[in-house]
Write a protein that binds this DNA or RNA. Structure first.
Lengths: 340, 340
DNA sequence: TTGTAAGCGTTATCAG
DNA sequence: CTGATAACGCTTACAA
């Protein structure tokens, strides 16, 4: 008779309170639908038993979870942290929970996580960016789950997006760089496969180069996975292959921080000997010295707006409104006029 | 008749394949229990329909989720990121999923999240540290869910822990500080309520001060929520109230980075005018200049070990083994001998 | 206001 | 190897 104890159920509560399960259920969900007396008895029983409703059962019966799933490329750094935090806060205010998974920038993993979150009954999904296999979108449509993309605004994609124009943003920064007299430009980009942000930032740079009569094929591009150390190595590679480069534009601030460290390691002064730019304007960008000239992204606003829009979609109040948030160039000290 | 399409179920698959639901279920779980022919037919149907098993239903029937829940104080910075990443990777290898929530360092929120994760059927829970209301532990025992604490090793607590001795670690760093001739010491601590790591780090500092014949009530302590800017403000406060302080020991690296910036803002050179120490040895510690002297914590090892132990507990192969990981002082440049 | 009972989509037991 | 069928714990008409 050493049966392992099992969590109490609705039934246990009902028995202890001397009512039906339906009544207990009502107490818990819409307390106003139950007389004060019974409610008190029920709540007491709940308290004594330490009852917590079984989520799976509730989901099955109610066909709603009030939870939103989000899949981000990584939680190993700050790029998505701030926006996601705002996303979660806003969701919380609207009575929704957030479930986060990270895909480690791996499309396969992302697909698994999407399926897992959907199977778990997420009422809606937040995804980062647009680049993914068509089959994923088909699956999503089939499952009839509202999905919103963030961190990238692109019109005419299969899902609406609350984000910003990565191409335009990088274009603007590159123009500034060129205006400052730089001609030999290198880029350290994140991995481009399945990553429209990286892809479009590079495209934006090429646009600007071309627009100013320089040769786009002249810009030296190195593609790296994500991480400070990757940035450092990439920087060293760039400088050894192309010593005449006067500015290294990085696909994000983390790579840029790595690049700055690479420069320091090589005994190069930033920005005197070499300019470096970032993208995202995470906290790190101001902390490193020299502080980074970078593209400022309205992370928190994006998170909040995405939360509101996604919930609207879930509640069928919207079919998906995209919004193009404005970015801005934040000038700090890592970029300077070409003195060469 | 504009019925919104609904995700396909086991039943749909069974019909399409011309078999019973039981067979489909077997196909999906233990493929070897089904003849090759039927399996093929079933898989085809699954494919065509784009079927994904409903997680809630599965959980209800199987009474297992193969998911582990973790509640961390914040995802807004790197302190827990690295360890958690390792935790997730290890879980993945063992066939488990991870669900993460963050409590924003709020005990109430943490309790909600615990209940939510348990209700969601988490097979086991990872919590950070030990300080929480007894009622929480009672609830957990009542629910019969294995729980493990991390980031803090304390013997004799209600749950086993895979972590390190925060008190001892800070004691060691403080001894080093004192050995270097510092006598006027200040501490910028994280919020202590419900946070044993913060509490014990402060205690460790006081231990060391007392052990060296200094007056513990002489150390100026300011307690702050978490964040770079909090560290900066705290630093300014400390220096204006206690200008003779020669070293500011911070409860974690984020606060320390803030403190360094505060010093810079006040025109103080670190470490010439003032020494600053951190705790955790996150990536940021090496990036800031001067790089931080801090306590190195074996984040990844902790994450991996915690994953293995928790899964053992879930699978009833262990009743909970604690482990005390070793920390070490990482000497960089933010701490120097007292020159006054 | 409360109770009864029919699902919700799986898995698992037991026959065949 | 396969098929019925009984759980699993909850919500929600529908009745009372």
């Amino acid at each position: 008779m050493s049966k392992t104890r099992t969590a109490p159920t609705l039934d246990d509560v009902a028995k202890k309170a001397g009512v039906s399960t339906a009544t207990v259920s009502r107490c818990l969900n819409g307390p106003e639908k139950v007389s004060k007396n019974t409610r008190q008895r029920v709540m007491e029983a709940v308290e004594i038993l330490g009852y917590t409703p079984n989520f799976a059962a509730r989901v099955m019966a109610a066909r709603r979870t009030f939870t939103i799933g989000a899949i981000i490329p990584t939680m190993d750094n700050a790029i998505f942290a701030r926006g996601l935090q705002a996303f979660q806060e806003e969701l919380g205010q609207m009575g929704y929970n957030l479930l986060v998974s990270s895909s480690a920038y791996d499309p396969k993993r992302e697909e698994e996580q999407i399926r897992s979150l959907v199977a778990r009954g997420a009422d809606g999904l937040l995804l980062i960016g647009h680049d993914r296999a068509a089959s994923v979108y088909e699956y999503l449509e089939n499952q009839n789950v509202p999905v919103l993309a963030a961190w990238s605004f692109i019109e005419g994609e299969r899902i609406p997006s609350i984000g910003f124009d990565n191409r335009k943003a990088m274009f603007a920064l590159a123009e500034e760089v060129i205006r400052l007299g730089h001609q030999k430009i290198a880029m350290i980009s994140g991995k481009i496969e399945g990553n429209d942000r990286a892809r479009l930032r590079l495209a934006g740079l090429r646009d600007a180069v071309a627009a100013h009569g320089l040769d786009p094929s002249d810009v030296c591009v190195v593609e790296r996975p994500y991480g400070v150390e990757d940035g450092t190595q990439a920087f060293e590679e760039v400088m050894s292959c192309h010593p005449k480069v006067s500015v290294v534009m990085c696909g994000n601030d983390v790579l840029a921080v790595g690049a700055v460290r690479g420069a320091q390691r090589m005994g190069l002064k930033v920005p005197d000997d070499i300019s470096i730019t970032g993208f995202d304007d995470i906290e790190l960008a101001q902390i490193i010295s020299p502080p980074l000239t970078t593209v400022h992204v309205p992370h928190r606003e994006m998170g909040r707006k995405a939360a509101r829009e996604l919930v609207n979609m879930v509640e069928r109040k919207s079919t998906g409104q995209s919004v193009d948030l404005q970015t801005a160039i934040t000038k700090r000290n890592s970029l300077e006029a070409f003195a060469g």
